[in-house]
């Protein structure tokens, strides 16, 4: 078990390192700022559904008016990790919350 444990840890560290290198290259890039466009209505509808199905699983649904757009940006990123949401789901929820606050 001791050896297996070490091997697991080594494998995971290796994977994490590779992931870190991969992502750091994109962090250092000079990509343009995100383009600001008005979200399409279907994204807002999808966001409302995703919001209800995922956020309500653990806690009551906050009113969209509780936070500003910028605060929702960060709050949804936090919940993307905690609730295991995809990037697409997170963006849809953001679009719904911003359109509703």
């Amino acid at each position: 078990m001791k050896i297996q444990n070490k091997q697991w840890a080594a494998l995971c560290i290796l994977l994490a390192s590779a992931a870190l290198v991969y992502s750091s290259s994109s962090l250092a890039g000079t990509e343009p700022k995100e383009k600001k466009v008005k979200p399409n209505p279907m994204l807002i509808v999808q966001g409302a559904k995703t919001w209800k199905e995922n956020c309500g699983r653990c806690h009551n649904l906050r009113s969209p008016k509780e936070l500003t757009d910028e605060e929702w940006d960060v709050s949804v990123s936090h919940m993307r990790v905690r609730a295991n949401l995809s990037k697409g789901d997170a963006e849809a929820v953001r679009a719904f919350l911003k359109a509703s606050n």
Partner: peptide, 20 residues
């Protein structure tokens, strides 16, 4: 127009924070 879009979609700042 860009400012209006930005105000609609949220400030496009690189760093944001939130106290919860």
């Amino acid at each position: 127009s860009a400012a209006a879009d930005a105000s609609y979609a949220g400030a496009p700042s690189d760093s944001k924070w939130h106290l919860a």
